[in-house]
Design a protein around this nucleic acid. Structure first.
Lengths: 370, 370
DNA sequence: TTGTATGCGTTATCAC
DNA sequence: GTGATAACGCATACAA
């Protein structure tokens, strides 16, 4: 390996001078600079980020801890994070933790040993205790698309997320406005704050519509396609009566679709369906369900930028960004469509030319009482 | 920050002893081990991976350089890589390079400075010169889902990929067997070896069927949805005559679908469509096109395991793994379906219960002449 | 403008 | 069994 000393020897100067040239710090005469640069090129010298990091206590690396890099929502978040990081010369260490607390703990431990400059994490639950390692060592942290269940006055975490409560309320209200009264909520893991918020939004919508909430209609599982299949199956097997399904996230929604299709149940004629978050634009190709979409790319980008700003000391007080969501309905959107489009409801697939795409900016309903 | 010396002081031993306890190396008496372990716990000591890396010249980190972490194929590869790495306590540095040679170069430079133990890369093109930095510093390297255009006797790179030639040949033959003679090839960037191989397989299939290849039917673009839209548009605008489209990858395929739907062209009645690689199981939900799928997860997993094996010196001679692909056809697969299923062709969407799913292991056709 | 000395946190080597 | 010493590659404080 070519080190700074090799370059120094080759250029006939001291290592410090090479360092100064590389980092553009301190005074270096034009002549020596050129000598040094020539030597660097000749030897193909590349500074060791590790040695530099050890010395400076800065690695220009962030950790990105996600539940599932296979889910289009999270990959788009990751893409936003990566773009912002790359632009500012930061690298990203990726950890996939599967909504598994054990894996999350291991990832956190590893991350601490790596001395990253910051952590972007979608924590499995809202307990601060599970992020304790980050807090103790005051690692700059941004929480992505989720939130904490507690207020932590002495730990300045930033949060970038959508407003799941208002999004879920919008979806539920949409279904109610179409005449649905029995709406099944097929949710993800109850411990995640997004699952909590989406169920909360669902309850609020029902309450405001004067519909009593049947607890049998609320099912918790995992944020995965297979869980969507299983939960749908479970509901059908138990013979529970409902005319619409609210899928707690995009993967669950795809599972619901799969199971309903398998059973030969037509969407939305027999059972209507709404998703939280689209699934790689599935709603565009398969426009028989309605989605609330968050701008995942922007969430990722904003989170990374915020982390850079915190890591470089540009801000220190905690910040929370709540990005807007949109309700997108392309079909079965009776309450929003005119008669002509209503009549399309009986068709299983519609030529998009005949479709009116309705996009509705979901108003933020914050703050909510605890 | 708590260092090894702090622990040593707290336990009343020397740093070396602490190191021995942490790494289970050398002899340590049971009594001191307990003292040290108590001190570690009390102080919350976490070894610095950086300092250790500097000393050992090993980071337990791999770089994963991908074209597009938003594409379900690559995310599944990434997932396989991550799983294998996590299992062996390796971390993954993720770089997204967008089939952009400039970004790839920057990523490589960064990666070298990080002193990763190995690199997993889907190189933009097959030129060894563009991987020169890795070769010069003999960084253990595995090429993922692509290959090199040159033979490099003195650089032992491993390769894990599918056989795009045979896969593309199978897809093309499938179309030919359905009666198609004018098949448009909507390919990705001509510089990537997968694009080259898939066009090659397409040509071979035509040739074997005695169909002359109309060069106007071959279009090159990017491996993205938007490019799929544009290329389809381009073909239609130029009034070129064809009855089927071969999409060079999954994203392009989704673009083709989007544009055909937009134009109100029915798939496959008016234009048949095949994809290379599925798109998040799109073919399952939307079973009117045929795909060749690679086991992306296995590709990623195998690649990571291979890299671990090389990084730990378990093997040194170059290896190439060619994983099998499958042709999956669920609809419009006239030549493979019986009359009943043939009759389904006129329906735009079919209840999967009525569908015969045909999965065909694509035989490897290697080796091919250069 | 350049160089010397020092230390970042760790572990291999050798001595006791 | 345990400890002192040196070195990994770099950048800072200080001296020249």
């Amino acid at each position: 390996m070519v080190t700074i000393s090799d370059v120094a020897r080759c250029a006939g100067v001291s290592p410090v001078t090479v360092s100064r040239v590389v980092n553009r710090s301190g005074y270096v005469s034009e002549k020596t600079r050129q000598k040094v640069e020539k030597a660097i090129k000749e030897l193909g010298y590349i500074p060791s980020a590790m040695a530099r990091g050890l010395r400076l206590n800065r690695t220009y690396t962030f950790a990105l801890i996600l539940p599932d890099i296979t889910n289009p929502f999270w990959t788009t978040v990751a893409r936003g994070v990566e773009d912002a990081a790359q632009q500012r010369e930061y690298s990203i260490l990726l950890y996939n933790v599967d909504e598994d607390m054990h894996k999350q703990e291991r990832a956190l431990e590893t991350v601490l040993s790596q001395q990253v400059d910051g952590v972007l994490i979608a924590p499995h639950d809202g307990l601060v205790s599970h992020l304790q390692p980050l807090r103790m060592r005051s690692v700059p942290t941004v929480i992505v698309d989720r939130r904490l269940n507690e207020v932590v006055p002495d730990w300045p975490v930033d949060i970038v997320r959508g407003d799941s409560i208002s999004g879920a309320k919008a979806l539920t209200t949409h279904l109610i406005s179409l005449g649905h009264r029995k709406i099944a909520m097929v949710s993800g893991d109850e411990r995640t704050t997004t699952a909590q918020d989406r169920v909360m939004g669902y309850r609020i919508a029902l309450q405001e519509a004067g519909i009593s909430c049947d607890e049998n209609l609320i099912v918790y599982g995992e944020f995965r396609v297979s869980a969507g299949v299983e939960m749908t199956n479970h509901l059908m097997e138990r013979g529970i009566n409902f005319s619409a399904i609210f899928a707690g996230n995009n993967a669950i929604g795809m599972g619901v679709v799969r199971e309903l299709i398998r059973r030969g149940i037509r969407i939305p004629e027999e059972i209507a369906l709404v998703f939280y978050d689209d699934y790689a634009n599935a709603s565009e190709y398969f426009p028989f369900f309605t989605v609330v979409t968050q701008n995942a790319y922007q969430i990722g980008r904003t989170a990374a930028e915020l982390l850079i700003s915190r890591a470089t000391g540009e801000h220190s007080e905690p910040r929370e960004f709540i990005l807007p969501s949109r309700l997108v309905t392309r079909y079965s959107c009776g309450s929003m469509l005119d008669d002509h489009h209503q009549s399309l409801l009986s068709l299983p697939i519609v030529n998009p030319k005949d479709l009116k795409e309705v996009v509705w900016e979901v108003p933020l309903l914050l703050p909510y009482p605890a």
